[in-house]
């Protein structure tokens, strides 16, 4: 666990840069984390981030690809275009939520 300056704020993050306290998150923080990942946020990115936010508050977990497809209406191809490499992991990081994880 570490503290990091993001968008002029002191933010608690895990060793791999995921936010620990979602209440420290805002749109400027999101844009700064995205920039570190080489992503400039557009409306299409925000559609994904807002879905993750809404869904996490409802279900207590970051939605997986199938849920993004079926419930969020975002295709897998679109996800890979917007957030290359690990789309769920990257989008979760920018949305200020934990890394999708298993039990161990």
């Amino acid at each position: 666990m570490a503290e990091k300056q993001i968008a002029g704020k002191t933010i608690e993050v895990t060793d791999d840069g995921f936010m620990v306290k979602h209440e420290q998150w805002d749109r400027e923080v999101a844009a700064a984390i995205a920039a570190e990942e080489g992503i400039e946020l557009t409306d299409d990115h925000w559609k994904v981030l807002e879905f993750i936010d809404k869904d996490f508050k409802e279900k207590g977990a970051v939605p997986g690809i199938r849920r993004m497809n079926k419930v969020g209406g975002i295709s897998t191809k679109e996800l890979y275009t917007l957030f290359p490499d690990g789309p769920v992991k990257k989008a979760a990081k920018i949305a200020g939520y934990p890394k999708p994880a298993s039990c161990v």
Partner: peptide
């Protein structure tokens, strides 16, 4: 599909 075989920090450190 996850970011590694172990995804929880403490377990990842030990295992």
């Amino acid at each position: 599909p996850l970011s590694g075989a172990f995804t929880k920090p403490i377990a990842a450190g030990v295992l």
